[in-house]
């Protein structure tokens, strides 16, 4: 197997993903999500991925996180690097309290129980959930859920943070706080892949951007250029 060059933490090499879903409805029931997508992710950079709904952005993140494998092509990850996906309100167990959910998330991301416990107070404080932290998540508003989800993922450390549209949630004040916390991580040595259809955030947070269209990479380069092309295309 080809090894990665030293600065590269993750590489997608001609990755395609098809899957068969349910009964044959169209094209023999095969969905073609990605078609021969290749790019590299470098240590410490923040890569933005833009594209319209349903073009396979989330699927791309799942491939990078190692949750699913490509139908063909290879995903190479630098040995020992952990990647985690940060999404809005996904994976919560509604009957468990915010505390239990946070503990579980941290443990599933690789902490031992005692390590996870150490994070809990920070999570409680940052998320500003107060006493609701001990209440079942089913009683939370969607804003509260995303605050919990965001905080849990942010405070437990991973090497590659894969972010799926999280900054667009919560009230204005929390959004600002989340953005600045995010920026702090991004400016540091955190490697981040950031998926969004908000061009402003991609421009302000990312060093590099990729535009996905029709299952392929349509443009790659500086965020200004790529976002500019993307916006021009949307107006057509």
């Amino acid at each position: 197997m080809k090894s990665l060059d030293s600065q590269c933490v993750l590489e997608l090499d001609a990755v395609s993903l098809n899957y068969r879903s349910g009964r044959a409805s169209f094209d023999g029931g095969i969905h073609r999500v990605l078609n021969s997508v290749s790019f590299k992710l470098y240590e410490g950079e923040t890569l933005g991925i833009i594209g319209r709904n349903g073009v396979g952005k989330t699927t791309l993140l799942r491939l990078m996180a190692g949750i699913i494998e490509p139908t063909c092509g290879v995903v190479r990850r630098k040995p020992g690097k952990t990647a985690s996906l940060l999404t809005i309100a996904l994976g919560f167990r509604p009957d468990l309290s915010g505390r239990d959910n946070a503990l579980l998330s941290a443990m599933l991301q690789g902490c031992t129980k005692s390590e996870a416990r150490l994070y809990l107070e920070d999570i409680k404080e940052f998320s500003e959930l107060g006493d609701s932290f001990e209440e079942p998540v089913k009683t939370y508003s969607s804003g509260m859920r995303s605050r919990l989800g965001f905080t849990t993922a942010l405070l437990t450390r991973v090497d590659i943070l894969l972010i799926d549209e999280v900054l667009s949630v919560g009230d204005a004040r929390f959004r600002e706080k989340a953005q600045s916390a995010m920026k702090e991580r991004v400016m540091g040595d955190q490697t981040v892949v950031y998926v969004s259809h908000s061009d402003v955030q991609v421009k302000s947070l990312c060093n590099r951007a990729i535009w996905i269209k029709d299952a392929k990479i349509c443009a790659e380069g500086s965020p200004e250029e790529v976002v500019g092309d993307y916006n021009a295309h949307l107006k057509e």
């Binding site: 985690s84 996906l85 999404t87 994976g91």
Partner: peptide
């Protein structure tokens, strides 16, 4: 599903 979509468990 929710957890599976998020983490490689």
């Amino acid at each position: 599903k929710g957890l599976i979509a998020k983490l490689d468990t």
